[in-house]
């Protein structure tokens, strides 16, 4: 499939391929994510959605293909390097830092904190503390937004499944990412909060944050995704806007049959 390179594409995946043993988890996948949009990534279970997210974020080494972030080739780079370029991912199964409190989970996220250098932590105590206060203010804002503020001093391991997903999302946003890859962020989150989250994602998008969103609930996808990529059996099945895709026969059969 020929890909037209839009000047505004911030994430571009070209001919990505990855096999696990005999399983072709990703089989020649190409798509772009344009800056300031919410792009949906949908498909039946085992379609390879999480594998694509892992490949983009550097957590799996791909066999073939290229991943570009804002024009830079980031294929198979170390995850922390990719993250440092402003691409933050969440995990499908929430991975909270269990023996850190909710607030500490948030405080880990900001990049290049002064006090992350042991030397600075020792000698520039005042500057480190000042920076901590700034991050703390931001963290508190996010936690309030996600209804997690009352739980701020709880160990993250003690949260409920839905709360963990929220924390994961809040933590990703705390890192001030340019591009966010969210692997089923709303699974296990109650419907009211799901609605609220949709609102936040749309609003963040309007502020220039780009999202690649894996989501099973198609009405959510329809509500917030500007563009949708449908995966099945490791390959791109169709692409377009959700309301068009709903009519597409292949998509229907992949979902119903798959």
């Amino acid at each position: 499939m020929a890909i037209v390179s839009f000047p505004s594409s911030i994430l571009k995946v070209t001919n990505l391929a990855k096999s696990f043993g005999g399983v072709k988890a990703i089989n020649d996948v190409s798509f772009i994510v344009r800056e300031g949009t919410v792009t949906g990534l949908i498909g039946p279970n085992g379609a390879g959605k999480s594998s694509v997210v892992n490949a983009i974020s550097g957590f799996t080494q791909v066999d073939r293909g290229v991943v570009e972030l804002a024009g830079h080739d980031i294929t198979n780079q170390a995850p922390h390097r990719i993250a440092a370029r402003g691409l933050i991912r969440s995990f499908q199964i929430a991975r909270e830092l269990q023996k850190l409190t909710v607030l500490e989970n948030m405080m880990v996220a900001p990049f290049q904190q002064l006090g992350e250098s042991p030397w600075r932590a020792l000698i520039s105590r005042r500057a480190v503390m000042r920076e901590e206060r700034e991050h703390l203010a931001a963290a508190v804002d996010w936690l309030q937004m996600f209804n997690l503020f009352p739980l701020r001093d709880e160990y993250a391991g003690n949260l409920s499944g839905g709360q963990k997903k929220l924390l994961e999302l809040a933590r990703a946003l705390m890192a001030k990412p340019k591009v966010v890859l969210l692997d089923e962020p709303m699974a296990g989150v109650n419907p009211t909060l799901t609605k609220t989250l949709q609102g936040y994602i749309s609003r963040l998008r309007d502020q220039g944050v780009t999202f690649l969103l894996i989501e099973h609930n198609l009405s959510v996808v329809e509500a917030i995704c500007d563009h949708v990529v449908v995966l099945a059996e490791g390959a791109v099945l169709a692409e377009g806007q959700m309301n068009e895709l709903r009519e597409t026969e292949e998509v229907i059969s992949a979902y119903l049959g798959g």
Binding site: F59, P79, H80, F91, R95, K99, L100
Partner: peptide, 15 residues
Amino acid sequence: RAIREDEDVAAALGK
């Protein structure tokens, strides 16, 4: 401590 709990998460946050 974040690394102790989950290296992947720490890496995903740019550490």
